[in-house]
Amino acid sequence: MTEPVIETRALCKRFGALEASRDISLDLRVGEIHAVIGPNGAGKSTLISQICGGLQPDSGEVRLMGRDVTGWDVAARARAGIGRTFQVSALAMEDTVLQNALLGAFGASGRRLGLFRPALRYRDLRSRALAALDRVGLAGQAAAPAAELSHGERRRLEIAIALTLAPRAFVLDEPMAGLGSEGTKEITNLLNELRSEAPILLVEHDMDAVFALADRISVLVYGQVIATGAVEEIRANAEVRAAYLGDSA
């Protein structure tokens, strides 16, 4: 079996008395979409922060393509191949959509950032940014300030920026949060295409989307993974139903 792209080993993280991560071991394998579900406050975003480097675990290990990256900062992990989106969009709102995408292209290129030549004149990076915008259907708004985008468009711009990084893994924190059924469907289709590019660790509340997309699902409750398995196993799991899915699933 090939090595997992992302792997966490026994991650523990406390906020005072609150155990936000309890002994979390999971992995993201080549070619898959691995969904992490769980109720509000279960510790999903905390897990993502530890994977991406924004939070240091109290104990445990984060591995990226077999390398221990626990001591690396966010920027180093991004350069090593993590393309993430945020639960609450983090964009340069005054800048245009294209400038936001270009930022990713420059960051990923690892080139020295020039002081004089306009960023838009770097042809190769510009076309890389435009291609990413095209993938998410935002090429038409390239010149618009990010602040003028709708909520749904901002979610897609986040994904486009992750795309410009040509990442080894996508780590997406609720990409469908706050979207209507139309928007959810669009992102679902988009993620379905992206899986051929890199595996996706997907935190998501929308169960229809999760069941449609995921190859595997992990259920996180009170900082603990109570089950991991294929979609049918999770659907059938009584403990999961009780803790999270309710009787509707």
Partner: peptide, 10 residues
């Protein structure tokens, strides 16, 4: 504007 964004692209 968004330090998180800058870090997330390396």
């Amino acid at each position: 504007q968004s330090p998180d964004r800058a870090q997330a692209v390396g």
